[in-house]
Simulated assay, not measured.
Amino acid sequence: MSCRGMVAGVTMAGALLAAPRLHAQAFEGSITMRMGSRGPQGAMSQVVEYLVRGGKMRVTMGGPMGGAAMIVSPTEKKLYMLLAAQNSYMEMSLPDSAADRARTAAAGADSVTVTRTGRREQVAGLTCEHVLVSSRGSATDLCLTPELGRFVNPMASLQGGALAPWQRQLGAEFPLKVTMADGSVPLEVTKVERKRLSNDLFAVPNSYTKVTMPPRRSPG
């Protein structure tokens, strides 16, 4: 798979969720989730492994797009995309949080309504609360838990890293399940493991060569 094809695939998955602020998380371990979408070729589904240690995140995507892995390092303000097939990696600077907040305000946070339903569910062994996010007459159901910290979407940096309007109204919470208005479920956590992780998982291998990031397409 080419670098450009890898970026396009990762961007597709990242579009399923809004981009939150970076936030150090006390949780350490792995979170396995199933992500899906609908496109010109029909429904697509893939397994995503989300690793957390000391505020750093690593996202590895399996399924038909296997081979994509990304590392987010808030302290370095960097995102690294690892291309295992080519023994190479691409590097991006993370967006400034102040600029993120400005873009969020410009997007119109007041146009989104967040409603906590009080209804709870067990997903992957954890309890989450169903929260309705309504905008333009459509509502999305997010089942959120505070036990895993704030969800950080590294793929969002490929789309400018803007903070979602509704994200500012919520605390440091992680979606275990997302249900769209049409009943489809683009994200569901299937397994959570609290365990120690190696620092090597959050570093670019020394054998990898740095390559240039392809330019993003302009919206529209």
Rank of each mutant, 00 (worst) to 15 (best):
S2F: 10
R4H: 12
M6I: 13
T11R: 15
A18F: 13
R21A: 15
L22V: 14
A24H: 13
A26E: 13
P40C: 04
A43Y: 09
Y50K: 02
L51I: 00
R53F: 00
R53C: 05
R58Q: 09
P64F: 04
G66H: 07
G66R: 11
A68T: 08
M70S: 06
K78L: 05
M81V: 15
A85G: 14
N87P: 01
S93L: 10
D100P: 03
R103Y: 04
A106M: 10
A107G: 06
R116K: 13
R116H: 14
T117R: 03
G118S: 03
R119G: 08
G125V: 07
V131Q: 01
S134V: 03
R136F: 08
R136C: 03
A139F: 02
T140D: 12
L142D: 03
E147P: 10
E147V: 03
L148H: 02
G149A: 03
R150C: 07
V152M: 13
V152P: 02
A162W: 07
L163A: 07
Q167R: 08
Q169Y: 11
Q169I: 02
L170T: 00
E173L: 08
E173I: 04
L176H: 03
P186D: 02
V192R: 01
V192Y: 01
V192H: 00
L197Y: 01
L197A: 05
P205N: 11
T209G: 14
K210E: 15
V211W: 11
T212M: 12
M213S: 05
S218P: 14
